[in-house]
Amino acid sequence: MDLNQKAGVSASILLGTWDWPLHGLRHPPTPGTSGWYVWAGELADEEDFFQPCHLAHLIGLDPALPRLLEGVPGSRFLIAPGHEDVWHDASLIDL
């Protein structure tokens, strides 16, 4: 995992106002981006819902995140205290 790559992250995470659960999905990476989108709570359709953030700033949110962010394109996760669900979603690969 290149911690200098960027992910799309919900504003609530960046502001430190987020609450569980924490969701993640990975599209194929592009130059400078990891393909990851990470958000807390409910996903919104707002154009500015996701903000760019380096992976290095995300890994401290939960001890499982460094391992989860190693997932290949098509990976998805949902975590909360005492809960972890990880699966593959092939629809994320063909955009």
Results as ranks from 00 to 15, higher is better:
54 H>M: 11
61 L>T: 01
84 E>R: 11
44 A>Y: 07
46 E>R: 13
62 D>I: 00
81 P>R: 08
58 L>M: 12
76 R>W: 07
61 L>D: 14
54 H>K: 07
70 E>F: 02
81 P>G: 04
43 L>E: 14
51 Q>G: 08
77 F>K: 03
45 D>K: 15
45 D>C: 08
54 H>D: 11
73 P>E: 01
51 Q>E: 13
60 G>W: 00
71 G>T: 04
69 L>D: 03
50 F>W: 09
56 A>V: 13
51 Q>V: 09
64 A>K: 12
66 P>C: 07
49 F>T: 02
69 L>K: 01
57 H>D: 15
48 D>R: 07
54 H>N: 11
81 P>A: 08
82 G>S: 07
49 F>W: 02
64 A>S: 11
58 L>S: 11
70 E>Y: 03
55 L>D: 14
65 L>I: 03
51 Q>N: 14
56 A>L: 12
80 A>I: 01
77 F>H: 05
60 G>A: 13
48 D>N: 15
63 P>T: 09
82 G>M: 09
60 G>T: 11
66 P>Q: 09
75 S>D: 14
56 A>Q: 14
76 R>H: 06
59 I>K: 14
73 P>M: 01
59 I>C: 06
46 E>F: 08
81 P>Y: 08
61 L>H: 07
55 L>P: 09
77 F>N: 10
72 V>D: 15
44 A>M: 07
70 E>W: 04
75 S>L: 09
63 P>D: 13
45 D>V: 02
68 L>Y: 08
72 V>Y: 11
73 P>W: 06
76 R>D: 08
56 A>H: 09
80 A>Q: 15
56 A>Y: 03
56 A>T: 05
65 L>T: 04
76 R>E: 15
76 R>F: 00
65 L>W: 04
45 D>F: 02
47 E>Q: 13
83 H>G: 06
45 D>H: 11
78 L>P: 03
63 P>N: 12
53 C>V: 06
69 L>N: 01
50 F>H: 10
72 V>K: 10
47 E>K: 13
76 R>I: 02
74 G>M: 05
57 H>T: 10
68 L>E: 03
70 E>P: 10
65 L>F: 02
55 L>G: 06
62 D>E: 14
77 F>I: 05
67 R>S: 12
49 F>E: 03
